[in-house]
Amino acid sequence: MSRAIAINVGANTTLPGFRGPVTPDGRFAYVPIPEREPTAESVPTYGDLSVPLGVDVSDVADRRVHLDPEFAGVYGSTTYTYGDEHGVKAGPLSTLDPGDSLFFYATLSLRGDPAEAPTFPPKWGAYLIGEFRVERAITGETYRELDASERARFASNAHVKRADFDAKVLVAGGEGSRLLDRAVPLSAPEAGATAGPLVTDLSSDSGKGPWWRRVLRYDADATARLRAVVDEGQPDSSDRKSVHS
């Protein structure tokens, strides 16, 4: 039975100093964090990205981006990979099996009239924005032992591009992986800091304190229910057109 983990990614008020937006109909902009380490390969700047929804990146246009996670078809990526150098995330992520879900959530600022988005918190909140259906999850040590042909699967990952490879875990997404077309709120409608039922009822997290910075874990039953909620929140395939296309 599949299980799931959800982790926080993307721009925030610390890095690079603003959050991505979400509109009352659920459209959102995935904005990566800045790259803070030297890289062996060139990486794009914020000015190089075609950030949707008219996000103003002029103040950080020359800063390089840490494009992680990467989603095929978004900002020039052709595959799905994620890496992390922090043990608090790497430990649980390295236990993911093929077919499990790695969900990504971000804190987003509501752009528009809160009255038009009654299920969204009025200012900012945590929202699910993407999912990998795990193809492979490995530790950094395992990656170092792979031959060149196996390493190629992760060649475009931001940690692999760094001058000093530092990922403690690497995850590759397979079929079914996606950047969502519509964000799904984890926060309750009252306030961004208040955990909603996808956290308190389904995950193993208490929803107390700064839950939106933590790793959220879902067992097999909760994962099935979470996937169903996410799918229900996406537009019909006939109407689907991602703002990141």
Rank of each mutant, 00 (worst) to 15 (best):
P122R: 13
A115D: 10
R3H: 04
W212D: 01
S58E: 12
G47W: 02
F132N: 02
Y80V: 05
R136A: 12
R136G: 03
T139M: 01
H86F: 03
G10H: 01
G207F: 02
L180W: 06
G125M: 08
S42A: 13
D100K: 05
L146T: 04
A183P: 03
P185C: 13
V9P: 05
Y218K: 12
E85F: 07
R27M: 11
P210A: 14
T14Y: 00
V184S: 12
W211H: 00
N8H: 01
R36C: 02
T200R: 13
A6D: 07
F71W: 14
G112C: 12
Y105Q: 04
G176F: 04
A126I: 09
S245G: 14
Y30L: 02
N12R: 13
Q234V: 06
I138E: 10
R182H: 06
W211L: 10
T79Y: 09
S187H: 03
G20E: 05
A6V: 00
S177I: 04
A172R: 13
V171Q: 10
S149T: 15
V9M: 10
L93S: 02
K161P: 00
A220F: 04
T14N: 01
T142M: 06
R133K: 05
G99E: 05
S245M: 12
E150P: 03
V22E: 01
A72F: 01
P38T: 15
Y30K: 04
K168S: 07
M1A: 15
V134H: 04
T107H: 01
G130Q: 12
R225Q: 07
T119Q: 15
R144G: 13
